[in-house]
Simulated scan of single mutants.
Amino acid sequence: MITIHLQPHDPTQTAHTLQAQPGQSLMQAAVDANLPGIQADCGGLLTCATCHVVVQSDWQSKLPPMSSDEDGMLAFTAQTREAGSRLSCQIELTEELDGLQVTLPASQY
Rank of each mutant, 00 (worst) to 15 (best):
G37Y: 07
T80W: 14
I4C: 04
D71M: 12
Q39P: 01
V53H: 07
A83M: 07
T103A: 04
R81L: 12
L87M: 10
T80L: 15
A33Y: 08
Q79I: 03
Q39V: 15
H5S: 14
P11E: 08
T14C: 06
C48H: 00
S88D: 01
D69L: 03
Q13Y: 04
P11L: 08
D69W: 07
E95R: 07
A15L: 14
Q56N: 09
P105Q: 11
C48D: 10
T12M: 01
V53F: 03
S107Q: 11
V55D: 00
Q24G: 00
L18C: 11
D41C: 06
G99R: 11
M1C: 08
S85C: 06
H52C: 05
Q108I: 02
L63K: 00
A40L: 10
D32N: 11
P8R: 01
T12K: 02
M66D: 03
E96I: 14
I2E: 00
A29T: 14
A30D: 11
D71P: 07
M73L: 05
S25V: 03
G37S: 04
Q60N: 02
V102D: 01
L26P: 02
W59N: 08
L26C: 00
D10P: 02
A40Y: 13
D71L: 10
G72D: 15
G43M: 04
E92I: 15
H52N: 07
H9C: 10
Q28F: 06
A40W: 12
V31Q: 11
M73R: 02
L74N: 02
S61C: 08
L46N: 15
L45G: 12
D32Y: 05
D69K: 02
